[in-house]
Amino acid sequence: MATTFETALKPFPLPAETEDEGYYTYVEEVGFIPRDIFKYVASDPMGDLQRFSTHIVIQHTLFFISFLVLASTGLPIYFSDVFWAPYVISFYGGIDIARLIHKIGAITMVITSMYHLLTIMGGTAIKIFRKEFDLKRTQIPRLKDLYDLIHDIKYFIGLEPYRPKMEKFMYKQKFHYIAVTYGTFVLTAAGSALLFPDIAAKLLPQTIGKILPPSMVGAQSFAAFFQDLARLMHADEAILALIVLAFWHWINVHFVPGRFPLQWAFLTGKITREHQIEEHFLEYLNNLKEIPEEREYMTRLLKEKGLGPLEEKPSKQKKCTLSDFPRIN
């Protein structure tokens, strides 16, 4: 497949012509990588570079299916007076079966979340143990993400020539990850209260009701207050999650130009080379370091274009860094 797109490669000029700092990134033994090389690389639509482990792919699949099942059984209950609700319910074979399916979906989602927590905590522990852990390659937000967002917006409106060089997870993905984590937590907590209202009322000690001023929790006991909160949060969070997923996540991941029919990463765990370079440039540099084949490919490509590695090492003062190589002269 990869060769089909080899024709997309076009010669491009030597580094000398550019005015921008950071347009070229020099990687030792590879060469000068122009920021927009992603337009010229060969890419397999099914993905070239490992991005997600098999665990993550399984978790995504389970989460995705359980979410759809939960949404399609939960929404008709919430909107029970809307005309389509009974049809959806009868599709599932009646309300009591739909309720059961909703519960099975919920349990699947909770187990998936646990599984996810286990894998990321275990994976992090192993990485720390092997001294491979790198905060920049995780989902943890950093100030850089904010700058990246601003940079990216500037790029979109034409104030910056290139998109920011981003890590494995960019600002969008970090935001979405946090949103999903928070949403799952809220939905699980509120859903448990709807499913086991009697146990929730037992577990919540009456003292909480006494600590908070009575005007805040209303005249009734804290259990009643919490139940009201759970009813509200469960429905609102679910609708929010559904809207964000349907109108943003799916469009953003699969429907935008460059990714259109499908991004197979959610099944193959691999990201295409061009996408990696465009949106996760710094991760691509990591790939170059870690994957010999990738290094070979890029070296060959750059050599073809006359951007190969320097013959001699540059002098000390001119020491190149990975992220910010000044243009050569």
Binding site: P197, D198, A201, K202, Q220, S221, A223, A224, Q227, D228
Partner: peptide, 10 residues
């Protein structure tokens, strides 16, 4: 498991 707290739920 309904108890004194539970019955206050609207």
């Amino acid at each position: 498991n309904a108890d004194q707290m539970f019955i206050n739920i609207a």
